[in-house]
Simulated assay, not measured.
Amino acid sequence: MTIHRVNDLFGPSDALKKKGIPLYIQVKNAIQTAIAEERLGNGDVLPPERDLAKYLDVSRVTIRKAIDELVKEDVLTQRQGAGTFVSERVEQPLNHLRSFTEVMRDRGKETTAKWLDRSLGVPHDDERHALQLSPEEEVVRFYRLRYVDGKPMALELATVPSHYLDNPFAIEGSLYEILEAQGRRPVRAFQRIRAITLDDNRAQLLDISEQAAVLYIERTGVDKEGTPVEFTRSWFPGDSYDFVAEIHDTH
């Protein structure tokens, strides 16, 4: 966490006085620009409201309204008695096939989960197609709300053919580590990512508004023999993640 002086974050105050644009919007945009240009980083604390108001030559009411808007959008986080912080974002590479637990562990984050469903049954059409199963084969579904340092950060519904798991109802941690122990860890995956809005139930679970955009990812993981072993659907709050990939020129 870094504590910044207000004059390190913004340009001259008269740059905010743009005609026709409400002042709180200008303040909001200035804070977002400071974050985008990395003058404010993940977990950094904002200067006090009174210092912001004095430097930017606006009222504290204006500052508070701008901050409230950014808190609603989960760009900022307020902690009682501690101040206002830049919400932490998770950078997740798309080039490497890692489990949620492994990605967070590498970042020194503590992960926990709340089980929403753990069941055995016949595959649905999308699961059967992704996993190349017959209608009679059974699958295990793992539906979890994933937390990072106590904050809900992902909904995950994973489907695995039941014959790849010795005791599916004993699984608590990383599904990939369990599959690795069975010699079936995915080594390649096909992913599809798109932005969607959530239904009220999933929005409540992730503690976001129903109108908030989320990133929906479908992933089919295949093992070293080329056999599909997992079909996972995940919902990530869009303002908490940066998905990054290395791109090469094919010419």
Rank of each mutant, 00 (worst) to 15 (best):
residue 175 L to R: 14
residue 110 E to H: 05
residue 223 D to F: 01
residue 94 L to H: 00
residue 199 D to P: 08
residue 37 E to P: 01
residue 208 I to Y: 08
residue 243 F to A: 11
residue 214 V to Y: 07
residue 230 E to W: 05
residue 21 I to Y: 04
residue 2 T to W: 04
residue 2 T to R: 05
residue 136 E to C: 11
residue 246 E to Q: 05
residue 6 V to R: 00
residue 151 K to Y: 06
residue 122 V to P: 13
residue 183 G to N: 13
residue 32 Q to D: 04
residue 251 H to A: 13
residue 83 G to M: 00
residue 212 A to K: 07
residue 154 A to L: 15
residue 180 E to P: 09
residue 153 M to L: 14
residue 202 R to C: 07
residue 96 H to M: 01
residue 171 I to H: 14
residue 220 T to M: 09
residue 195 A to G: 12
residue 229 V to D: 03
residue 65 K to Q: 02
residue 149 D to W: 10
residue 128 R to P: 07
residue 66 A to S: 04
residue 167 N to D: 09
residue 32 Q to M: 11
residue 109 K to G: 05
residue 53 A to F: 07
residue 165 L to Q: 15
residue 185 R to Q: 10
residue 220 T to A: 08
residue 34 A to T: 15
residue 181 A to R: 08
residue 57 D to F: 05
residue 196 I to A: 13
residue 107 R to V: 04
residue 135 P to N: 03
residue 103 V to N: 02
residue 7 N to A: 10
residue 210 E to L: 06
residue 46 L to M: 15
residue 98 R to H: 04
residue 161 P to D: 03
residue 92 Q to T: 00
residue 222 V to H: 09
residue 66 A to N: 02
residue 172 E to Q: 06
residue 203 A to Q: 13
residue 92 Q to S: 01
residue 149 D to T: 10
residue 117 D to N: 12
residue 144 R to G: 02
residue 19 K to E: 08
residue 130 A to L: 14
residue 163 H to D: 03
residue 17 K to Y: 08
residue 90 V to H: 00
residue 40 L to V: 06
residue 36 A to I: 10
residue 207 D to R: 14
residue 207 D to P: 06
residue 22 P to Y: 11
residue 84 T to C: 00
residue 2 T to Y: 11
residue 114 K to M: 13
residue 5 R to D: 11
residue 213 A to F: 09
residue 188 R to N: 10
residue 237 P to Y: 01
residue 225 E to L: 11
residue 164 Y to M: 13
residue 131 L to E: 04
residue 203 A to E: 13
residue 177 E to K: 07
residue 45 V to Q: 07
residue 207 D to A: 11
residue 75 V to A: 01
residue 39 R to K: 11
residue 63 I to F: 02
residue 146 R to E: 07
residue 197 T to R: 06
residue 197 T to A: 12
residue 7 N to Q: 05
residue 141 R to L: 03
residue 74 D to V: 01
residue 56 L to A: 05
residue 86 V to M: 00
residue 67 I to Y: 00
residue 160 V to I: 14
residue 22 P to S: 07
residue 113 A to N: 03
residue 59 S to D: 02
residue 175 L to H: 04
residue 218 E to C: 03
residue 209 S to I: 03
residue 144 R to Y: 07
residue 159 T to V: 15
residue 208 I to L: 02
residue 108 G to W: 14
